Amino acid sequence: MKRRYITIAIIAGIILLISWKLLSNKKQLNEKNKPVLNTNIRVPVSVTVVKSVPGNISFRKTGSLSPFKTVKVLATTSGLLLRLPFELGDAVQQGQTLALLDTRLLNIDLQKATTNITKLKNDLDTYTDLLKGHAATQEKVNEIRQQYLAELNQADRLRRQINDATIQSPLNGIIAAKAVEQGAYVNSGAELATVVNLSKVKAQVNLTETEVYKIKTGNHVSITADVYPDVTYDGNISFISPQADATHNYLVEVTITNTGRNMLRAGTFVNVDFVYSAGHDILVIPREALTESIQQASVYVVQQQQAVRRQVKTGLEMNGQIEIRNGLSAGDTVVTSGQINLKEGTAVNIAK
Rank of each mutant, 00 (worst) to 15 (best):
L342I: 01
Q321V: 11
D90M: 02
N319K: 12
I108D: 09
N122T: 09
V299P: 05
P35M: 10
V50F: 00
N153Q: 13
I223V: 12
T97A: 07
D129C: 03
S52N: 13
Q154Y: 09
V186L: 05
L29W: 11
S298M: 01
A244H: 00
E344G: 03
K178N: 04
A330Y: 00
Q93K: 03
K313Q: 14
K178A: 01
K140P: 01
A136D: 04
S24P: 13
S64I: 10
L29S: 08
F86D: 00
V53L: 12
N271W: 09
L120V: 03
N56F: 15
Y228E: 12
Y300F: 15
E253A: 13
S238D: 13
N122V: 12
T291F: 11
N258M: 10
E323I: 06
V186D: 12
G133I: 02
D245R: 00
L100I: 14
T103A: 05
T291Y: 14
D273I: 13
Q204H: 10
F86M: 06
F274E: 04
G345R: 05
G315V: 08
A9G: 15
Q147G: 04
T76N: 11
V227N: 05
T166Y: 03
K132S: 04
A225L: 10
N116M: 06
L192F: 02
S222K: 13
L198Q: 04
D332W: 00
V284I: 15
K352H: 08
L82D: 03
N107W: 11
N142L: 10
V284S: 06
V270N: 08
S52W: 06
L22E: 13
L207M: 09
Q295A: 08
V92G: 02
Y213I: 11
A330R: 00
K140Y: 11
T114S: 15
Q296D: 14
F274T: 01
V205L: 07
Q311A: 09
Q138M: 02
E209C: 01
E317P: 05
Q321G: 04
K61S: 13
F59V: 07
G218M: 03
R60G: 01
N163F: 13
V47E: 02
V252I: 08
Q305H: 01
G218I: 06
V186P: 11
Q204T: 15
I294H: 05
G189N: 10
E151Y: 12
T97H: 00
P44R: 02
G345F: 07
V49I: 15
T115P: 03
L82Y: 02
Q303C: 03
L82C: 01
T314G: 07
V201Y: 08
Y250I: 06
D281N: 15
T259K: 09
S169R: 06
T346Q: 09
I324W: 00
Q295R: 12
Q161F: 13
A155C: 07
E211L: 02
A203V: 04
R157W: 12
E143A: 12
I10C: 03
A246N: 11
L88Q: 08
L207W: 10
L81I: 15
S199Q: 14
T103Q: 05
T336P: 04
A9V: 06
I8Y: 06
I41G: 04
A246R: 06
G331F: 00
A150N: 07
T333E: 10
N33R: 07
A9L: 13
R60E: 02
